[in-house]
Write a protein that binds this DNA or RNA. Structure first.
Lengths: 345, 345
DNA sequence: CTGAAAGCGCTTACAG
DNA sequence: CTGAAAGCGCTTACAG
């Protein structure tokens, strides 16, 4: 006598299955979690019933008792930023590979919203949180440090001592990028930054400054300007640089999107890249190799950094507390947007 | 006598709060959900205690009893695709605005993985699912149609009749784009498609074909080629078109990323856009206006489409079952990558 | 307005 | 190997 249950009504709980299998719900629970504490035959029968009926165990009920949700929360400024998307892709990849689901929330860089989503993550009892490229200020730190779940910060403004972090080695990478321009023969090198005040910005500027210094070049404040990490603002900043009595022959940009805007402006002004002005970016977005000209830039291994952040969380869950302030080296990718300056300056 | 609880040990459940407030946990529950069934003073006291102790209600416990998780699952092929990122951004925005959290999962366009993540969403008891730009084939449909939660498909291959959908009006938009090229005077217009077989691809090709037909132009099969929606494959396909004895004077691409690759190849072959060849894309990604030349393309309101998909879900939850097969019009954005052909053909 | 009770769907000692 | 029992942290009739 076989139990044929294909296409039968859905069994929605362990009790339903227990009833048709004529065992206790404890046994069903054990069978479905492959516990050895259950007779082989019985276990198989139970599993078959579960499969045939399309039963799906409730992760929420399980979470309630195990106190582990196998869920993490990821808060990003803006998922439409290609850097962020790359990172999230890496996070999701390794999370999924370990049976974790990921909640994603945009903060739009609004402090209140960032606080709100972190709060909601707490209520959902996530096992950990990753915060990517947050620019939210100091008032955010206390909230984070009060949390009972581990937090990993990725390229964040305020690497709080309460949290673990994954960061690109901004200073060294920016130094490399700027030195590349110096070695090409440039002397009037501009820095087109992000909005001031956060760590990545400060560090990238520092690398730029150190490279000039090491080459015995004077830092010219007029060649230091700000965008906001997006093309439009960079366009404006570039226009400003081009209007200078002595415009730069090269510009190191905070990121690739800024470089995109800068190049657009250079073109609109009737000049050429790299003929008239060399441009270097930061990120190596997927599209940067297809830009015109293909962009010289610092590669951040975005996916990999996402993986690392998730792996850090997994290590912490497993209590394999290793050193968790990871510094990832950037890599200078030289393409066609940089060349020796036309004129000697 | 005031209860001062700032900095006290964390109260982790409603019972803990009940104890210090000297009421039953039922009353605490009511107070925290702003039920009118509780004395004003008592309610305030309870809320103060909760606030001061950093208490966070467990959404998982609540979900278990209410059978609503206020959670949705979003499955995407690849979050690093800028179109997808735009859509997700819209979804998240309206979800957050209505107290919903979103699970994000990449399928990498692998059928097994897509099935796996949908299954995991079921276990997590999401209230609804949005599937974006899936290319997963027919074997996926039965899984979806068996689900007990509402599903919204966004620009999907197989708009199953079991699910609701939000789709760009591919045919009309592609017709407009191709007609734009015809009106500029082009006669040898190529179509650089995606991999065959899915709906968006088929429809965009149909629009292209209809435009030619309407203008009395013959469809030339040699001018129809395939990429995979990404720049690299498009580059190869473009190289193929350029090698033709009679190369096209214009090319309509499946999407902006394909256009990016096509333009790259045209440049690498020493030709100019739009001087030698006009190029039209589809999507209007954020970067497309900054490309060189700025890209003529069909705008898909990605964020808005994401909002619509989420709103559809919200409507269904509210049982305001309206018509839920939304067709969104595309908009042709004419920029600098298209111009009249040099030679008369 | 308030509390005791039942129950959401699981897991896991505990006792056989 | 199996089942009865307790409990995870909530909500919500039900009875006062």
């Amino acid at each position: 006598m076989r139990t044929n249950l294909s296409h039968s009504a859905k069994l929605t709980s362990i009790k339903d299955i227990a009833r048709v299998a004529r065992v206790s719900h404890s046994t069903v629970s054990r069978a479905l979690s492959n516990s050895p504490l259950v007779n082989q035959k019985t276990a198989e029968k139970i599993r078959r019933i579960a499969r045939d009926s399309g039963y799906r165990a409730s992760a929420v009920a399980r979470s309630l008792v195990t106190r582990r949700s196998h869920t993490i929360g990821v808060v990003v400024t803006n998922i439409a930023d290609p850097f962020v998307a790359g990172v999230v892709s890496g996070i999701e990849e390794t999370a999924e590979g370990h049976g974790f689901s990921v909640f994603l929330a945009n903060s739009n860089a609004e402090p209140e919203r960032e606080v709100r989503v972190v709060r909601s993550f707490e209520e959902r009892r996530v096992d950990g949180i990753i915060v990517t490229a947050s620019r939210v200020g100091a008032r955010y730190v206390p909230l984070l440090s009060n949390m009972r779940v581990p937090i990993v910060l990725l390229n964040n403004q305020h690497p709080s001592q309460f949290a673990h972090s994954v960061m690109i080695a901004n200073i060294q990478a920016s130094l490399d990028a700027t030195r590349h321009l110096i070695e090409l023969g440039h002397r009037r090198i501009a820095y087109l930054g992000d909005r001031g005040g956060h760590q990545s910005e400060t560090e990238r500027f520092t690398g730029y400054r150190q490279a000039l210094e090491a080459a015995g070049l004077r830092l010219n404040r007029r060649l230091v300007t700000q965008g906001d990490g997006k093309p439009e603002a960079a366009k404006g900043a570039m226009a400003h640089l081009l209007a200078l009595p002595q415009p730069p022959t090269a510009v190191f940009c905070y990121n690739d999107l800024s470089a995109l805007g800068a190049i657009r402006q250079i073109r609109d002004s009737g000049l050429h890249v790299p003929g008239d002005i060399s441009v270097v970016g930061f990120d190596d977005l997927y599209i940067s190799q297809y830009m015109d000209p293909p962009l010289t830039t610092v590669r951040q291994p975005m996916r990999q950094m996402g993986c690392m952040a998730m792996q850090t969380l997994l290590d912490i869950f497993a209590e394999a507390e290793s050193g968790h302030d990871i510094k990832v080296p950037g890599e200078l990718i030289v393409r066609a947007s940089t060349a020796p300056p036309k004129e000697k300056s």
